[in-house]
């Protein structure tokens, strides 16, 4: 099937952002914490996006910030997916008591708004990158759990799973060789959406001053550092916010395409 234009645009920009994140030290024109000019210098040939609240090159901060944001979001997505899908598949295959206990516990966690619960947890945790990734990943795993359990429950009653069981295969085989390959496509589409959610989540936390701590840069943190300029008509804080939005929209376009493709492969339910 040909890729629609929107998905190509999305893929292109996603690749640009990831490329910039991976090769940050080679692309960035200055050092990350290097003070190279005056406070909030306007856009010029030396500073393509101007300078920030204490005179660091904004483009450099953006590139390094994107690196942090994308790294944290990716790691948290991986944790969320591994935990959520393994537990979801386990709950679906075990059934009965274990399923009830896990599902009700997940319901309980989901009855508290994620941001509020994350704030409660971060109020007592040391705020550093591993803790952030873990808190975000585990809180979001509840959503992945729900999806993967729902998908796996459907697959679990299929004839080929029954056949595998009768053959005498163990639970690990059923989960990894029967359920996982068939559950992969909805999970992959969901992964894009979870990744966006993570980008927004970590940016929000950093914006609130509870995420990545200075002098490390990340997009939410750059908004926070430069927000005071807004009142004086200096748009520096809008740059990272714009980057967050374009990255999220690009990934969304790709995820949307994957989702459409997988549903049409299955005879198109939606």
């Amino acid at each position: 099937m040909r890729m629609p234009l929107s998905a190509r645009i999305g893929l292109f920009f996603t690749a640009v952002y990831f490329g910039a994140a991976i090769f940050a030290p080679w692309i960035a024109p200055y050092g990350m914490a290097e003070i190279v000019g005056d406070v909030w210098e306007p856009i010029s040939a030396d500073h393509l996006l101007g300078t920030d609240s204490i005179g660091r090159d904004l483009l450099t901060r953006m590139i390094y910030g994107g690196r942090t944001t994308i790294f944290i979001a990716t790691m948290a997505t991986i944790i969320s997916f591994v935990t959520g899908s393994v537990l979801g598949f386990l709950a679906a295959t075990l059934g009965g008591w274990a399923d009830q206990a896990l599902s009700r516990f997940v319901d309980l966690i989901m009855s508290i708004p994620t941001l509020i619960f994350a704030l409660v947890l971060l109020s007592v945790m040391p705020v550093d990158v591993p803790v952030l990734i873990l808190v975000m990943g585990l809180l979001d795993a509840t959503r992945v759990y729900r999806l993967s359990r729902a998908v796996a429950v459907d697959i679990n009653v299929m004839d080929y799973v029954e056949a595998a069981r009768l053959r005498g295969e163990g639970r690990a085989w059923v989960i990894f060789r029967e359920i996982l390959p068939n559950a992969l496509s909805p999970l992959v589409a969901e992964m894009g959406l979870r990744f966006i959610f993570m980008v927004l989540f970590v940016s929000t936390l950093s914006f609130l001053g509870l995420g990545v701590q200075p002098p490390e840069a990340d997009w939410g943190g750059i908004v926070k550092e430069n927000k005071d300029g807004i009142i004086y008509g200096i748009p520096a804080a809008l740059v990272p916010a714009f980057a967050i939005a374009t990255l999220a929209i690009s990934v969304n376009l790709v995820a949307d395409w994957v989702l459409n493709r997988t549903t049409s492969l299955k005879g198109g339910r939606g």
Binding site: S203, G220, V223, I230, G233, A245, I249, D256
Partner: peptide
Amino acid sequence: TLTSISIPEFLIGYVLMYFVGVK
């Protein structure tokens, strides 16, 4: 809709603040 679910609240906030409030 697709665009607006991809935009963080603080972006909308600062964009409005910059254009409607300051400019």
